[in-house]
Design a binder for these strands. Sequence first.
DNA 1: GTCTATAGAGCGATAGAC
DNA 2: GTCTATCGCTCTATAGAC
Lengths: 199, 199
Amino acid sequence: MTGEHNTKNLIRGAARRLFAEHGYNGVSMREIAQHVGKQPGGIYNHFPNKQAILVDLMQENLRRAHEAVIATIDDRLSPAERLECFVRSHVLHNIENPDDIFIAYMELRSLEPEGATHVSKERNGYEAALRAILDDGAKSSVFKLSDPAIHARSILSMLGGVTVWFRQSGPQSSADVVECYVQAALQSVGAPYYPPIER
Amino acid sequence: MTGEHNTKNLIRGAARRLFAEHGYNGVSMREIAQHVGKQPGGIYNHFPNKQAILVDLMQENLRRAHEAVIATIDDRLSPAERLECFVRSHVLHNIENPDDIFIAYMELRSLEPEGATHVSKERNGYEAALRAILDDGAKSSVFKLSDPAIHARSILSMLGGVTVWFRQSGPQSSADVVECYVQAALQSVGAPYYPPIER
DNA sequence: GTCTATAGAGCGATAGAC
DNA sequence: GTCTATCGCTCTATAGAC
């Protein structure tokens, strides 16, 4: 699936990088072609138009991101443990795929209606999964929160912010950053945070 | 200053609305002119070019937003009280000026270098003001946080998210939403949250 | 599947009458 | 300060040779 066709994937890669940096409307087919080392017209052998490249990136990446996070959550764990799993894998995935995530959350407005509703549904499902954890914790009073829906959104905004400033090449280790977001997210719903292990 | 010239302010208003909805690169001078009820060429009597409209909006609005928030913080208060003031006025300002804030945080990449550095400095100063509060609270152990810089960024991302989903015309009251973010932000740094008053 | 060439539309910005 | 008109350019997308 990923390596199905070389040029098509090169186009995906160039578009991902350029869309993340300049935004969908700030990037031309010519620029994408140039980064792939091909002529502009040739892109249309792989995607019917520019919008299709964005749809391809957003739908596929968002689906994979959500799937990866949801898979790490074991329903038998406590709400606090499930939230910790959620945050940890979400931030880790964001750190490892900053461009994908950045595009997915910035370019909803550049999608035409059909793609926009699809992506919105995908996002709402993900948000609902997080809200279910918060609801559970609120019921058993291990979480202190007045509105699970708003807290869910605020956690997602918080975690999404990591793609704006964090770079793997920077001074901080991924593990430390993840840990810090785990602490902030757990505490934000009133759950206690215990650092992994003293060194 | 605000009412200095009618057409110029109409242009500001149309550009604010359109940039927030479609992004800087997704809006043409023709569209802005149309929303103002003027001819495209006429805009250039008020702004030298398109970029100048964006710079005008971002610099002025960000400065006013930060000024308004910082002004509500009394240095004699405790770190927790100062953080509460910060969050409360920040969210309230975001709610009352969603387009301004949304543009300021989304369109940094559409700014040419000169304007980008100016806006970055403005933002960094604001982030530093928040970090100073967190540092204070961490020193006296009323806040529980492993990295004040990351916690400051995570709070700002969290609060900024309100512009994405909240609408004044929606079902929730501004006051309730503000209160919810106050709770999430205070708790995220490990500070206790006391609801305003039982009803 | 890639190329060259270009159609057809829209863009930012300017000139000059009023 | 607003208008009409337009320049020069870039854009997405297509056609057709190889």
